[in-house]
């Protein structure tokens, strides 16, 4: 009897294993181009339900990586699996579960948005239904106009609706907000976040720091075909700097604040003080609470600045920084 209770969890673990396969897994993937950049020995794993952002300048290898995931190009070496399935051998099965937005968008110019979307819906096995109707409405997409008459933003919306329709388990988005006006960009970000909340996984590339900071859980910084660093946004946030300006009613608590390890005093005029706090604000607040305060303002650096800082530090001292 005791033996069965031990083996029980194991068995259920085994049963769960296929669905627990990571949506994206790349192992030692290399792709070289003649005289051009590719990617070099890349390892990457996307966890289920995660929003992972690929951040890097143009030409760093983001699009190459994404095109390998979709089997549009084939790596020279390494293993590429989505949901535990080889992208080459099980391409159809894999792509049924993936929504893709290409970086360089090419659409059938003579077709209308509806014609394109129903064509792709049919190829995805939706028959002659229109699984995109609701999405098109949400993005205010005019379905009956030929694509050639649409603005860049509207064309991008066609591609976006196409990627999202059918609610795929994994979204692979190559620069999803390029060319969109800020309102629609927010809409896209909201869509990405809500997809992640409902258990979908998202892999996006971007060269826009603020975008990455606002949607991603984890960021891979790519340069010259390699992932230079992996950063958790949460950790980055934890390492964010707060700027505190305080005016005491009486004498300030200079010594006590100085004693705190994460505090740097940038200006001190006795009763008024400016300090920089890295990480937790708690100890600072605890000190200040013991004094009579005339005025207090706290500003947080936006994540973008922190990010920039983290990137900058990386350049000086590779492997060290605010986040692991």
């Amino acid at each position: 009897m005791s033996g069965s209770t031990v083996s029980e969890p194991k068995r259920s673990e085994a049963r769960c294993a296929p669905s627990a396969r990571p949506p994206i897994q790349m192992e030692a993937v290399t792709k070289r181009y003649r005289g051009a950049r590719g990617i070099e020995d890349m390892d990457l794993e996307l966890r289920a339900g995660e929003v992972f952002a690929f951040l890097g300048p143009n030409g760093a290898g983001k699009t190459t990586t994404i095109r390998i995931l979709l089997d549009l190009i084939r790596p020279d070496a390494g293993r590429v699996q989505l949901f535990g399935l080889d992208v080459r051998r099980h391409g159809v099965e894999v792509r049924r579960r993936v929504g893709y937005l290409p970086g360089e968008l090419g659409l059938y110019e003579q077709l209308t948005a509806r014609e394109i979307l129903s064509h792709f819906a049919y190829l995805r096995g939706a028959g002659r239904s229109e699984p995109f109707a609701e999405l098109a409405e949400r993005f205010e997409l005019e379905l009956s106009r030929p694509v050639r008459s649409l603005s860049k933003g509207n064309r991008q919306k066609v591609a976006l609706v196409q990627a999202l329709m059918g609610d795929p388990e994994l979204l692979i988005l190559d620069e999803p907000t390029t060319g969109l006006d800020p309102l629609v960009q927010d809409q896209v970000h909201a869509t990405i976040r809500s997809a992640a909340r409902s258990g979908r996984s998202v892999f996006l590339s971007s060269h826009v720091l603020s975008e990455v900071a606002s949607v991603a859980d984890r960021v891979g910084i790519i340069s010259d075909g390699r992932i230079a660093r992996l950063v958790r946004i949460e950790e980055l946030r934890a390492a964010a700097v707060h700027y505190v300006d305080v005016r005491f009613q009486g004498q300030g608590g200079y010594e006590e604040l100085c004693a705190l390890s994460n505090v740097r005093i940038t200006a001190d005029a006795g009763a008024t003080m400016s300090i920089e706090v890295t990480g937790s604000l708690d100890p600072v607040i605890a000190v200040l609470a013991r004094y009579a305060i005339a005025d207090l303002t706290i500003r947080e650096t936006d994540l973008e600045t922190v990010f920039r800082g983290a990137l900058g530090r990386h350049d000086e001292k590779p492997g060290r920084g605010a986040a692991a």
């Binding site: 979709l70 549009l72 159809v92 893709y100 290409p102 090419g106 995805r124 591609a159």
Partner: peptide, 17 residues
Amino acid sequence: GEEERGTINLLLSNPVT
């Protein structure tokens, strides 16, 4: 032609061989 116009990327990202 589909390749030069860039439409083949979306086409082949569908579950078709």
